[in-house]
Amino acid sequence: MTTDKWHPHPMLYAAAVACVVAIGITAAFFLMQPILRFASIDKRQAPLLDGDTSDEIWIRAEPVSALTAHGGDFGGSGETRVEIRALHDNENVYLAFVWSDPTRSFKHLPLVKEDGQWRLAQTQEAAADVEGGAYEDRLAIMLSPPGAFLIGGAIHLGVNPLPSKLGSLSKRGLHFVHTGVRLDVWEWRAVSSGLSGWVQDRHLGPPIEPTAEQLAGHQRYEGGFVVDEDEIPSELNFRSSFAGQSVKPLRLPAMAGSLQTAERLNLLAHHSKSAEDIRYWGLRKTESVAYSPAIDAQIPDGAVLPGLLINDDKPVPEGEPQCAADWAVGFWTLECRRSIISADRDDLTFSSGMLMWLAPFDHAQTRHSYHLRPIKLELE
């Protein structure tokens, strides 16, 4: 007598195993997800924004960290770990970020005068791939509403991920989202933020239509990235960006003789020896005048002109992110403050359940390091 035994179909068996594995991965994702808790404080205890986390109140904040990888440089490793602390006083949130970076980098596309003409001191800006030391350090902070949004939904690789629009100058891809999700992005920049106190406030959404300058190849197309209205702490101090060609500055120093020469400044090094060097790489609008041939004629060959124009003629808008940073012994420390309630329609109001991603740049234009698992925010 024989006994029939049930043998599951191999495909059914594989599907069952896949479901178990998927459930396990999903559970692990949420159980191991780092949670950044915003400790509640009295407004009178708010930390001073100075790039120094020695304020006693920061002890109240439990730190979390994220290891970011696949970036440019960072000592050749492409990796850096970012530690984050957070506080709130029911009116503002306060965030402190500390990450390793072997060098303090301030240079941002400086111009050098040669044979009476201004030229870029590097060669890759037209390809959105300045990785050779002529770009400032940066940290991007991306926030999304509560939910299961994955960073992969905003990353689209390839030379032309949008066939009906412009491709990526770097030929590595674009950032945008197809859904109705609108992401809030802060971008701290060592020079423009350091001289203005602003964190550039941006948002990420569906692909935007390219401008005439982008279609002409004079400006980089950024997919779904848009700077919030009137949130521009700095801009390039020249129009054309074709490598090797002469460029016309927008503004010149009010005192033509105040510029340093290429012999005195190291245009090739990835680092700046002193925090005071920041004054060589950003031209404040309040200390400059509109370009004129007469003033330009007073500037000798060999002079170095900052490639960044700092819009310091107006204060940081009320409720927008403000910041202060400092670099010491291989680490950047950045402190930020922003109102809990969104200041405009492009910002997100802080609430429990929001997600955060971080992207440090080590003197790189586009090759930032990143992490995939988001940090979940909780406000006490």
Results as ranks from 00 to 15, higher is better:
F38N: 01
L31R: 01
P34W: 09
L31T: 00
A14T: 13
R60W: 07
D42G: 09
A69R: 05
T53I: 12
R60M: 11
T68M: 06
L49N: 14
M32G: 10
Q33V: 03
R44F: 12
S54P: 05
V64I: 08
V64A: 05
A22R: 08
W58P: 00
K43P: 06
L48S: 12
V64N: 00
W58K: 03
A18I: 06
A16T: 03
Q33M: 10
W58A: 04
F29M: 02
G51W: 03
A22K: 05
K43G: 13
F30M: 00
V21Q: 02
Q45T: 08
I41H: 04
A61Y: 00
Q33C: 05
D42M: 14
H70E: 09
T26D: 15
G24Y: 07
L36H: 01
P47K: 05
W58E: 05
A28R: 15
T68H: 06
A22T: 06
A15F: 08
Q45R: 13
I35P: 01
L67Q: 05
M32F: 15
I23P: 00
Q33G: 04
E62H: 07
P47E: 12
A22E: 05
M32S: 11
F29S: 06
I23C: 10
T26G: 10
I41F: 03
T26P: 06
V20D: 05
D55M: 15
A28F: 15
V20R: 11
D50E: 14
T53D: 12
V17I: 05
A46H: 02
C19F: 14
L48R: 11
P47H: 08
I59A: 13
G24Q: 05
I35T: 08
G51Y: 12
E62L: 07
S65I: 11
